[in-house]
Simulated scan of single mutants.
Amino acid sequence: MSLSACSTINPYTGEKQTSKAAGGAAIGAVSGALIGIATSDSAKERKERALAGAGIGAIAGGGVGYYMDVQEAKLRQKLEGSGVSVTRDGENIILNMPGNVTFDTDSTQVKSSFRSVLDSVSEVLKEYDSTMLQIAGHTDSTGGDRYNLLLSQQRAQAVADVLSGYGVQAVRMDVVGFGETQPIADNGSASGRQQNRRVELTLIPYEE
């Protein structure tokens, strides 16, 4: 997976940019990626059986790029102005959902105002159902390690639950919390801590 190819669209200006935050998001996705579909052979086999049982097929190798290109374009259109950034890293797509637009302080309940954004994401995910999801929660360094780990897990699960409620199959989702271990900005500043409080959705093509 190439990190040098990361690009992102600023959700407020609409401008394409390559940033430290985008690179950090990709690194975070790499280090925890594909808990179900790309770990051990036995885990992969179990996941594949579950996907087949849900009627989800793999993408032929030659069609992966186009499949993800069209999906990325639709996500960028739907998420413009939402506060969610869209980053492309190789064939993966990363949606960075900042904590300040997704959750109230210290809350694990998705804001009611953000549910429409997740509804828009789910519409694309249901159309492109050969895409697997890693949903990863992250926090800043404020508070204890155990608290931050639990908070990140609960927030990631809350996003997964909302997507599931909108019809995205649970078998496609892996949920994980990283606590404060994968910052994308300096925790020494308020703006940096705000960037670190996030949920990242990494969309991974399910290939043959």
Rank of each mutant, 00 (worst) to 15 (best):
residue 71 Q to S: 07
residue 140 D to T: 08
residue 7 S to T: 10
residue 196 N to A: 04
residue 68 M to R: 11
residue 10 N to F: 11
residue 109 Q to D: 06
residue 151 L to N: 10
residue 176 V to Q: 15
residue 90 G to I: 02
residue 163 L to H: 05
residue 186 D to W: 02
residue 206 Y to V: 10
residue 162 V to K: 07
residue 69 D to N: 13
residue 23 G to C: 05
residue 127 E to M: 02
residue 163 L to P: 07
residue 41 D to R: 14
residue 160 A to R: 14
residue 107 S to A: 05
residue 208 E to D: 00
residue 31 S to W: 00
residue 142 T to N: 13
residue 137 G to I: 02
residue 20 K to M: 12
residue 169 Q to W: 10
residue 134 Q to L: 11
residue 111 K to R: 15
residue 123 E to H: 13
residue 75 L to A: 09
residue 201 L to A: 08
residue 92 N to F: 12
residue 156 A to W: 07
residue 135 I to T: 01
residue 134 Q to T: 08
residue 174 D to P: 06
residue 110 V to A: 00
residue 161 D to M: 12
residue 19 S to P: 08
residue 47 K to I: 10
residue 22 A to L: 06
residue 43 A to N: 12
residue 131 T to W: 12
residue 56 I to R: 07
residue 156 A to Q: 00
residue 122 S to M: 10
residue 194 Q to K: 01
residue 55 G to Q: 02
residue 140 D to N: 13
residue 32 G to K: 11
residue 29 A to R: 03
residue 132 M to D: 08
residue 45 E to R: 06
residue 12 Y to L: 09
residue 38 A to Q: 05
residue 134 Q to S: 01
residue 29 A to I: 03
residue 175 V to C: 03
residue 172 R to A: 04
residue 196 N to C: 01
residue 200 E to G: 06
residue 87 T to V: 04
residue 156 A to N: 04
residue 39 T to H: 10
